[in-house]
Design a protein around this nucleic acid. Structure first.
Lengths: 154, 154
DNA sequence: AAAGATTGAGGTTTCAATCTTT
DNA sequence: AAAGATTGAAACCTCAATCTTT
């Protein structure tokens, strides 16, 4: 008996392994990022803003826009206005550098450190809740495969 | 000799395996989705719009907003305006259902099918270019791990 | 001219509130 | 009242053009 499609469903060629993995990857990232974004929203931070704060916490001497852009986990073509919003809330401070007056150094402030501190444990909990059931071994296998994905042509 | 941090870099506790995998996942999804989004932009489609068209191609009898939302690879809380834009370009058509006049059925049109047809090969090529170097075995392992990720608490 | 950052304009996303039909 | 879809307002993202300093 030949395979039959569900009603109203046009059968198409089987998806390639590449396409299947690609879709799984996007879908999974979206699914897992959502609860974290929800958590961040309780303190009115977008994932990108949170990412910037964590980057700046790691470099208390301050970083230029370009350096921040390089370290972002997600590409962002408008660091300026991202920093604008954080500065308006006094979570960070900005200033021109003394030597090269083209560059602007962004630094995290006490307010930013406080917000981050209040999020550290909840974020860790969320990660564990979302991925802890995989166990260390599979998590490392996953990390390895993802690194291999990023080593492709593009 | 005790481990020393890079200049200006505040050392922090080693990230948990969950956090590392989480960040890798988000980063990788962003990185891989970008070239595809670029390709779609050549025909003025966003990834979400492309996703809707593919979903509708699979169901020529039409689907309700709710059904479309369920099948989206990425969650979208505003299917209405997504469809608005596609309808304005005559890639899809919409109409109220006869029986239950609350529901709106969206159907793909000839224009939408044409755009999709023009994209099928380039999209396949992009997937292969991005992920083909992994090989079938690792791709399947990846798909399995991603499925396990989605089977978590949330 | 090039590097670094900012601004303007348009489209998109998001939440919540609303409208319509059951 | 509940399900299904639409609308309003505000924040956000993106591209290209601009400004400033080297």
């Amino acid at each position: 008996m030949k395979p039959t499609a569900a009603p109203g469903r046009t059968p198409r060629r089987a998806p390639s392994a590449e396409e299947a993995a690609y879709l799984d990857l996007i879908r999974t990232a979206d699914l897992l990022s959502r609860p974290v974004a929800q958590l961040l929203k309780t303190v009115d931070l977008s994932p990108a803003q949170y990412n910037v704060l964590r980057i700046l916490r790691g470099s208390p001497d301050g970083l230029t826009c370009g350096e921040i852009a390089n370290r972002m986990i997600t590409r962002d073509p408008d660091i300026t206005r991202l920093l604008d919003r954080l500065e308006k809330r006094r979570l960070i401070a900005r200033g021109r550098d003394g030597k090269d007056r083209r560059v602007v150094l962004a630094r995290i402030g006490p307010g930013g450190l406080d917000v981050l501190a209040s999020l550290d444990q909840p974020v860790r909990d969320a990660h564990r809740r979302l991925l802890g059931h995989l166990g260390e071994e599979r998590l490392r296998a996953l990390a390895g495969l993802l690194a291999a994905c990023r080593g492709g042509e593009d």
